[in-house]
Amino acid sequence: MTTQHITLTVNGEARDADVEPRLLLVHLLRDVFGLTGTHIGCDTSNCGACTIHVNGQSAKSCTMLAVQADGAEVRTIEGMVAGTELHPLQQAFWDQHGLQCGFCTPGMIMQAAWLLDQNPQPSEAEIRAGISGNLCRCTGYVNIVKAIQQAAGELQASASAPAAAGEAVAAEA
């Protein structure tokens, strides 16, 4: 079997692998790297459970080849937590009961994180449009929208706190 060598960054960590040409990115993450937080729902890019970030853009990892991630920076749900502190979106999904079975949650959070990155103060309509590629069969979306609104507020508040903003700029530089 032919394999191709790829190197990539996953949640800030340099990784490499020898992969079959048609290995899906989601299978690389789950089966090779053991990052099973990214779920596989439909395999046809409908449901959004497999959403991750590739070079800062949200993408459905069931519809990407692992070889297409060669050289890329990938972020998965496992990369959202800072030490033991939940990301504001993770905390907000908890606080607002933004999940029941939880299957859609990792993808929903990754898509919401990208949305807030693009649009830090989305309206409810913009949130609903922003997560329209992610299906949830439990919640009816109401609490998911509330969770994203809560996280947007917290991220805004922390971004506008002068000390925190200064640190963030220093860290970026």
């Binding site: 890019s45 959004g48 853009q57 459905k60 990407m64 898509q111 449009a129 922003g130 329209s132 590629g133």
Partner: peptide, 9 residues
């Protein structure tokens, strides 16, 4: 077209 993730790719 699709939604955000599809539009990104």
């Amino acid at each position: 077209i699709g939604a955000g993730q599809i539009q990104n790719r």
